[in-house]
């Protein structure tokens, strides 16, 4: 009964933990929810041309995940009261956006020209939104509050980042941030040219990880040693004459005597009925309690 209650409590605990984790950003699955409206061009006179050679407004969608995402089935709209305004067709390989990749939709109100041609334009648009395949979950939304400039795109300063502004360069289907960036390693070495910082941090982390293991294992070990010594004490008490109440508490000596008797019987030496069996603890400096030594390869000659 107590056990059942404990299991019940444990299950409740796990369920609560899962709910908490599910509510955090960290638990987000890498799916359509990772898509972002990344850059737009509303007034296109001499900027990027579509696959028909036309200048139209366009919307760039960025996959911020590290796995491919199929945008097919999602909806793009310029009207929040009509979230399913443009349904992105499914089944086309072109709708699969590679990890950290982009797709560009042309807002030319000519959906007959292909799946990337929307059924609305951006000239008078105040809002652009991307909805999930269920048509209800809003994945991302952009409110166009500033007057747009001709041939100047408006986008996130870094791909998937929070800050928006007019861009110096138009980058449809490419990284928004054109500034020269040092790699993580280069940045590290700029601050730590001799590697002393890396050594200190890394050794600290390695020591912390293994020290944590040490602390936990020291305590687990203590627990098991105490448990073993308690069990040994109990066994000892059970072997005291008059206190031996449980049959399963037979000592090693009794087992050895039975084994010896069986051996003698099987060897047909059962005539020796009054033999004294002496069991002596083997004392050796080295006890090969694990046979690993015998499994090693020979030392190199």
């Amino acid at each position: 009964m107590i056990m059942q209650r404990k299991i019940k409590h444990l299950l409740y605990g796990i369920a609560v933990l899962l709910l908490v984790v599910a509510g955090t950003d960290l638990a987000k699955a890498q799916n359509a929810i990772d898509l972002r409206i990344n850059e737009i061009l509303v007034l296109n006179e001499s900027n990027y041309v579509d696959d028909f050679g036309m200048h139209n407004g366009w919307i760039e969608i960025f996959n911020s995940a590290y796995s491919p995402i199929n945008i097919g089935g999602c909806y793009l709209t310029d009207d929040l009261s009509n979230p399913t305004k443009y349904w992105i067709p499914i089944g086309d390989p072109a709708t699969i956006i590679p990890p950290r990749g982009y797709v560009v939709f042309y807002a030319d109100q000519r959906p007959a020209r292909g799946i990337f041609h929307l059924n609305f334009t951006l000239e008078n648009t105040e809002t652009i939104a991307l909805f999930d395949a269920n048509g209800r979950t809003k994945i991302d939304e952009l409110k166009i509050t500033q007057p747009q400039k001709v041939d100047v795109t408006y986008g996130r300063l870094t791909d998937g980042g929070e800050n928006w502004d007019f861009m110096e360069f138009s980058t449809p289907g490419a990284n928004n941030d054109h500034s020269r960036k040092a790699s993580a390693g280069e940045k590290f070495v700029q601050m730590d040219p001799y590697g002393i910082g890396m050594t200190m941090i890394a050794m600290f982390v390695v020591f912390s990880a293994l020290a944590l293991l040490y602390i936990i294992y020291k305590n687990i070990g203590l627990f098991f040693v105490q448990k073993a010594s308690k069990a040994a004490k109990k066994d000892l008490q059970a072997t005291i004459p008059g206190k031996h109440t449980k049959e399963e508490g037979m000592s090693g000596e009794v087992n050895a005597a039975i084994a010896m008797a069986l051996y003698l019987y099987q060897s047909e030496l059962h005539d020796e009925e009054n033999t004294v069996l002496t069991i002596r603890k083997v004392s050796r400096n080295y006890s090969p309690w694990s046979s690993k030594i015998y499994t090693l390869r020979k030392s190199p000659r």
Binding site: F207, A209, L210, A211, Y214
Partner: peptide, 13 residues
């Protein structure tokens, strides 16, 4: 003998 774990950390020097 868990303290031997720490030797494994030191050798990463």
């Amino acid at each position: 003998n868990p303290k031997l774990i720490l030797i494994g950390a030191a050798a990463q020097l």
